[in-house]
Write a protein that binds this DNA or RNA. Structure first.
Lengths: 215, 215
DNA sequence: TTTACATTATGACCCTAATCATAAATCTAT
DNA sequence: ATAGATTTATGATTAGGGTCATAATGTAAA
């Protein structure tokens, strides 16, 4: 089994935004926890006890399909929260979270988090906005995954990340992902991604530098 | 162009739940508007002025891809709200809403809706829960659309609707959709859906009655 | 009833992404 | 520097969904 896809890619660790202010989390009683590379933070189908927010490192949020293949729903960058669904609907986790490298995570007990939202409508709106943002991404993705052209799937994925400034290389300010990551997020086979990427480069739609893909 | 896919299917019009109480909406100044079959309620990319809640009829929420194909993101049943993304993130509509048959819709000006949520944290939580529900569906869908077996795509879609008691036939209490609708929501071609459905019936995974699909 | 349109149906052919095998290159950790 | 794992690469083959053509059936409205 392939593990730790993100190990190699170094993103700019400048935090673009933070879901909840760190001092505020600490005041409320949040604790910080460290995870090693490939350690499981929580698992799909289990009950949720905490609100999670990533401080440093990188987390992938994935589901495992019947045939054992990982489908990566999202890759989390510092400042973002993850695994928030159960906090709103009291159901189990929809996906598992795995540390892609050494991670520092803040966690706040769920009832405290829920009370926090009740006390702070503006923060609640910020979370509604986050949920909508994730939904817009899913809308885009499900539409494009339904299309049958691999190049379309890849371009729409990269285009979205560019717009969201996610997975941006610190040096060149371009979206930078491995072919393997793209495969994991689109369900395409790596070989297909490799061949599509080459063709996209030939037609000038993206750049390859020292074998790495930039968009 | 194919229009009005839902015309023929008669769902149980018993309303399963209502997002916001109708009297409350009226008190707040909501108005009721009727739409004819295939009339556009709002269009992808345009600005949003209202909160919309369906009273009767059926609305499909769709995107049109470059090649002109409709991708149906959701089909709305009475009591549900639709087109709510822009109310939380102030961006344009992510998809268009089209009346699938004669519809009655309640609409509330956006600022009044937003104030309502601020005044009523519990209602705000109900909407957060709705957003999460939609997200869970999208998670399921994008994972399964990424898989490449048509029968898997179809079964997971139908399975979800069964669980959610959506598109349930009033007489037999089973999920009932046309093959065309399934095609529109999975991105599969109708012919593929027809052939897959037949095979699924042969293997006992769903029922066909007078040509109609039940699950 | 008739008309118009959607849905369902079926066969033939084609295209292409998946699959399998193999190997080089690159990165990480020790 | 070395070992082990991951990513990238390439070719050959194949399975299977898309595409096209055609038609029957079903449904709603005039």
């Amino acid at each position: 089994m392939r593990v730790g896809q993100l190990k190699k890619v170094r993103y700019l660790l400048k935090i673009k935004y933070i879901m909840v202010n760190v001092d505020r989390l600490l005041d409320l009683g949040a604790s910080t926890k460290k995870y090693n590379s490939n350690e499981i933070i929580f698992e799909e189908g289990t009950e949720c006890y905490y609100y999670y927010q990533l401080v440093s490192g990188s987390v992938r949020w994935l589901q495992v399909s019947e045939d054992g293949k990982e489908f990566v729903q999202d890759m989390i960058e510092p400042g973002e929260c993850f695994g928030e669904f159960p906090l709103f609907d009291e159901r189990p986790y929809a996906a598992s979270a795995i540390a892609s490298n050494e991670c520092e995570v803040m966690r706040l007990p769920r009832n405290i988090f829920q009370q926090l939202l009740k006390d702070d409508p503006d923060l609640h709106f910020a979370f509604s906005k986050l949920l909508v943002e994730r939904l817009r991404f899913r809308f885009l993705l499900s539409k494009n995954l339904a299309s049958n052209k691999p190049e379309d799937k890849i371009c729409s994925l990269l285009g979205y990340f560019k717009e969201q400034k996610k997975y941006i290389c610190s040096k060149c300010n371009l979206v930078q992902l491995t072919r393997q990551q793209i495969a994991d997020m689109t369900g395409l086979r790596v070989e297909t991604v490799i061949r599509s990427i080459r063709h996209l480069q030939e037609t000038g739609k993206l750049q390859i530098n020292k074998g790495k893909v930039f968009y």
